[in-house]
Amino acid sequence: MSNIFFWRKKREEEKAEANQSDAASNSQDLVATELPKRNSKAGIRSLFSRVKFDLESLEQLEEILIQADFGVDSAESIVLEVKKIAKTQGAQSEAELKTILAGVIRDKLATGNRELNLTSGKLPYVILVVGVNGVGKTTTIGKLATWLTQGNWKVVLGAADTFRAAAVDQLATWADRAGVKLVGPSSEGQDPASVAFEAVEYAVQYEADVVIIDTAGRLQNKTDLMDELSKIRRVIEKQAEIAEVLLVLDATTGQNGLVQARAFAEAISVTGIALTKLDGSAKGGIVVAIQNELAIPIKLVGVGEGVEDFAFFDPEEFANGLVA
């Protein structure tokens, strides 16, 4: 994330400063900011904590990968590649093989743009957060909001999960913690699309930099609920472009993760994945299959319940962590 700048609106005091030093005033009233760094290293546990990894146990590699939720097909293809590379390189030692494995996994995850789309300068950036029940959507939003606020961004949260009991309260607590404005339903069970609309409307009026919309968890095989997402998208787009549709995926999820990603991608054109609960014993190997099949980049990882427990996904770090 080093040299990427995110463009937000200038605050009044910044405008004043810019006027004083004429040289720096670019015609726009946007300012490039670097947002605080986050680190995910704590989150990843090695595949090989209990197993030795050498040429003999290469056969077992497939099983090890399966146990990390890579799935049978991905596991098979990774093993084949590792074997091929090991053969051409004449690799023998554990260290060499691990480097090769890490490289194969990294390459599978390194495609696509993993930056958050907060660079276009078209404000407010709308981030829509979707996923099945219980994956950590609301928590992820809380963390994102805090992070953006720390970068002096003006954030609005839209509580469009009007279904689950107390979901709005839960988001409100996060909004309080981050010190940002929350737009929620004015009556119980209000149509989520209308809440999303009002949140974006408010963000436009209030000249916010970002508006993050929380949605109700929905299982991807419920057609009517998936259709609701398209409706939410349509009403938002009446007022602002959607910068980012984040699919939140629980790292403990197995092969159904791919089915989830497929369904959500089809329903609402997902632009990135937030992989949560990576601080547990789960490895989230299904993301390899997701990236391979759907080319949806993993953008964020969640590594705890604390407000700062998230990071930008780094394939290199992830792969190295897995084989460490």
Binding site: Q67, T252, T253, Q255, N256, G280, A282, K283
Partner: peptide, 11 residues
């Protein structure tokens, strides 16, 4: 939950 993957064993 029914979506839990291989980690079910560890958990």
């Amino acid at each position: 939950d029914a979506m839990l993957g291989q980690d079910a064993v560890n958990v």
